[in-house]
Design a protein around this nucleic acid. Structure first.
Lengths: 348, 348
DNA sequence: TTGTAGGCGTTATCAT
DNA sequence: ATGATAACGCCTACAA
């Protein structure tokens, strides 16, 4: 008769317990788990029965200690509250799911310290690989991760000649598209509402804006930059107030915002202060998050293939993990302008 | 002289390697890691030096295999794309951070299968505990988790007489607040735009709406329910179209939506079809996400203390993990109506 | 203060 | 087809 496992034990059942109650050896249980074809049907059923009875749950720690690899991926997001990143995450998740891996989401919330803590912990966990939209892509901790053997893919940023893969969107082009569009519809004074210059995306989009402006032969001083503390709805509102404060003759007739959060904040401030969009102020956002199209004055925005961004990033990571001869790759997607009422319409 | 660790080895350095290069025993290295006070300053520095040189990274799998517990918590979210849940997550994160634990976010995306896969994996990982906003709070897998020793706290749902803690908001009251407000401002025909009845929150909010309606002595048939497939922006738009389709004399003058995503979709469809808010249709949302206040017609909404919800949930979980005499608790927060232009204003 | 030994649960390599 | 056994890396008594 089978030996009863430690009764009343709060410890969860191990393969050893399963082996004991099934009356087989430990190796057999392991075979049932990992190579079921090597074990006869009857014993296998007996073992499976024992596992169910005991409520056996595989211990992933022991497993990965032994095999040297886990079944997890992680994505360290820059801002989980920004729908752009959750959409990217969805793309990653899809790829992870099809590869049979679990995806952990970590939120750095734009803070280097949190990002660092997450990275350290993920490294200790020996996750198979890390996807990250970094606070600062030049952070040495990222190189250190790679040196120590954790593959990393940078999402939504690039770094020249780097030792990792990255997937990004051409932000300079995106900035150009936005401003070219505003010029096309007749604007001669435009504001670029950016987050802090420390954010690469913000810099690049501003650079694209300036390029388009210069190429149209317009005077540089008529493209004014409003710099915000963070690319958030609240800052967009604040930017709106600063805009109203300008003397009418110097006040821009249009604004290009570094992301949709800023644009939505600006939109709301504009409307609620009694002005109209695009009549008094045309607005272009960036990212084309769902809420942009859903704004009462639907927002013109620069769309990024955020789902593909995530999926491709995950694929690169999985390739790096799986293929011995992996070559690092810098993928750059092309953004696209989606024109809506906030620059075109006569609404509101 | 210290023994050199396996050169060129792709395997990462272990405590053993550190001990070897530092010329101390394995136990001393462990002490440096776990009780630095027990080791003399000079040896400690030597060991730390060796760790730095070797790029030593603690192996969390081995650690938790040995100690029987991890340093991670997880929150399984119902919809990572809904800012309500990301705000809840932020509250959880705060509590986890102060407790020195890492938080993994998992997204079930409303799919039972994904939820189940995440739970299984987290259980195998032996996370310290799981917070979850479940697709279905009666899912037996949740009870099974608890039986097998993983503490669980349900977020944003309750279950009567249950074997776990939960933190929720009184959704029936929330529904009442919304509809009482609409009655107050003079509406006599109101639509309740809900997601599928399978979602408890949707049921409860609808129930509250009906209670308020009945108590005001209004005829039940004048509170019409529009049921949507999912509580999303797209479905809100679709609901708007259905509303327009109704004959004018039966058409509601106000809508209460089960969440802000629906409300924003409805708002947008209403405005873009040339009608006004609240003139032609007053709208109340639920959750008071940031985008609700930021809508061009700021949305009246039922606010939930989503940050506190998360924080409290995490605290309960940590208590359950840490305190032996833990008592399960069902915390219920009170929602609050935030009235804005979508029911009050004369804008737009 | 430092070193030694045993074991956590699993997998994989051998024998049988 | 099944069983015994030795790691994986770490922690913690306990011994020196």
């Amino acid at each position: 008769m089978a030996i009863t496992p430690a009764a009343g034990s709060s410890r969860s059942a191990s393969v050893k317990d399963v082996a004991a109650t099934a009356g087989v050896s430990l190796g057999t249980v392991s075979n049932v788990l990992n190579r079921p074809e090597r074990v006869s049907r009857t014993t296998r059923e007996r073992v499976e029965r024992a596992m169910a009875d005991l409520g056996f749950v595989r211990n992933e720690s022991a497993r990965s200690l032994r095999t040297g690899s886990t079944h997890s991926l992680a994505y360290v997001m820059l801002d989980a509250g920004n729908p752009f990143f959750t959409d990217v995450a969805r793309g990653i998740e899809l790829a992870a799911e099809t590869a049979g891996l679990s995806l952990f989401l970590c939120n750095s919330d734009g803070r280097s310290a949190r990002e660092g803590a997450h990275l350290a912990h993920l490294q200790q966990q020996r996750v198979q690989g890390i996807l990250i939209t970094p606070v600062d892509p030049d952070d040495p901790q990222i190189d250190q991760l790679i040196e120590r053997g954790t593959p990393v893919v940078i999402v939504d940023r690039t770094r020249a000649g780097s030792s990792f893969c990255s997937v990004a969107v051409d932000d300079v082009l995106g900035g150009r598209l936005a401003v070219e569009h505003l010029i096309d519809v007749g604007h001669k004074r435009v504001a670029y509402v950016g987050g802090p210059e420390s954010i690469g995306q913000v810099r690049d989009r501003g650079e694209g804006a300036r390029q388009a402006w210069a190429e149209a032969g317009l005077p540089p001083e008529d493209l004014v930059t409003l710099s915000c503390e963070a690319p958030t709805v609240a800052c967009g509102r604040a930017a709106g107030e600063r805009l109203v404060g300008l003397p009418a003759r110097r006040r821009p007739t249009a604004a290009f915002c570094a992301n949709d959060l800023l644009a939505l904040g600006l939109l709301q401030q504009t409307i609620s202060s009694g002005r109209t969009v695009p009549g008094d102020l045309a607005i272009v956002g960036y990212d084309d998050i769902e809420f942009a199209a859903a704004a009462a004055v639907p927002l013109t925005s620069v769309r990024q293939p955020r789902h593909d961004l995530g999926r491709r990033a995950a694929e690169l990571l999985l390739d790096e993990v799986g293929e011995p001869g992996h070559q690092h790759e810098q993928v750059v997607f092309t953004p696209e302008l989606v024109a809506r009422a906030s620059t075109l319409g006569r609404l509101s």
